Amino acid sequence: MPNPSPLSNESLGPSNPEAERDRGRLRRSVKRPVQFLSFWGAIALPFIHLPLLTQGLGDPHVTLTFLALLAINVLALYVGHGYNR
């Protein structure tokens, strides 16, 4: 006799193919604009880095801003790399 699980799966219910299709359509409809914004953001962000670099990174706030922008740029490159293929 198998041990009953302390957690019930009754709330999960059977999968609904229509709901799965709707989620797939939603993902596709959101993916393209997100990739577009990320792609062009990755292109534009280095122009914001230039004034920070010319000002110098001696101030901790400027350094932190530069590193945050750099991290955002790397994330934008990753998300937007598949745009317009």
Rank of each mutant, 00 (worst) to 15 (best):
residue 1 M to Q: 15
residue 60 P to T: 04
residue 58 G to C: 11
residue 28 R to W: 08
residue 27 R to D: 09
residue 8 S to L: 06
residue 46 P to V: 01
residue 75 L to W: 13
residue 34 V to L: 10
residue 34 V to Q: 08
residue 14 P to L: 06
residue 33 P to R: 01
residue 63 T to I: 09
residue 44 A to G: 13
residue 38 S to G: 04
residue 64 L to I: 14
residue 2 P to F: 04
residue 45 L to Q: 08
residue 72 I to M: 14
residue 83 Y to Q: 05
residue 23 R to H: 10
residue 11 S to L: 13
residue 81 H to D: 11
residue 51 P to G: 00
residue 43 I to L: 12
residue 45 L to R: 14
residue 29 S to A: 15
residue 46 P to L: 05
residue 65 T to P: 05
residue 77 L to Y: 12
residue 60 P to N: 03
residue 23 R to Q: 13
residue 31 K to R: 15
residue 57 L to I: 01
residue 48 I to P: 05
residue 37 L to S: 00
residue 34 V to S: 08
residue 52 L to C: 05
residue 41 G to H: 01
residue 71 A to M: 04
residue 57 L to C: 01
residue 45 L to G: 00
residue 4 P to E: 01
residue 53 L to C: 08
residue 15 S to V: 15
residue 15 S to M: 10
residue 60 P to R: 03
residue 24 G to T: 11
residue 24 G to F: 08
residue 77 L to K: 09
residue 51 P to D: 03
residue 82 G to P: 07
residue 58 G to P: 03
residue 7 L to C: 15
residue 59 D to T: 10
residue 76 A to Y: 04
residue 39 F to K: 05
residue 58 G to Q: 11
residue 74 V to M: 03
residue 85 R to S: 11
residue 35 Q to V: 09
residue 21 R to Q: 15
residue 60 P to Y: 07
residue 79 V to A: 04
residue 26 L to F: 09
residue 75 L to V: 11
residue 4 P to T: 01
residue 60 P to A: 06
residue 77 L to E: 10
residue 65 T to L: 11
residue 85 R to I: 14
residue 83 Y to I: 02
residue 54 T to P: 07
residue 35 Q to I: 09
residue 52 L to H: 03
residue 75 L to C: 14
residue 3 N to T: 14
residue 42 A to H: 01
residue 56 G to V: 00
residue 20 E to V: 14
residue 66 F to G: 05
residue 8 S to G: 06
residue 34 V to W: 03
residue 9 N to F: 14
residue 38 S to I: 00
residue 84 N to Y: 10
residue 81 H to Y: 07
residue 79 V to T: 02
residue 67 L to N: 08
residue 17 P to H: 04
residue 67 L to F: 05
residue 9 N to C: 13
residue 11 S to P: 02
residue 61 H to N: 14
residue 36 F to M: 10
residue 51 P to F: 00
residue 62 V to A: 06
residue 32 R to W: 11
residue 64 L to D: 12
residue 75 L to Y: 13
residue 64 L to M: 14
residue 27 R to S: 08
residue 39 F to Y: 13
residue 79 V to E: 00
residue 55 Q to M: 05
residue 31 K to D: 13
residue 71 A to G: 12
residue 42 A to T: 04
residue 12 L to Q: 12
residue 30 V to M: 14
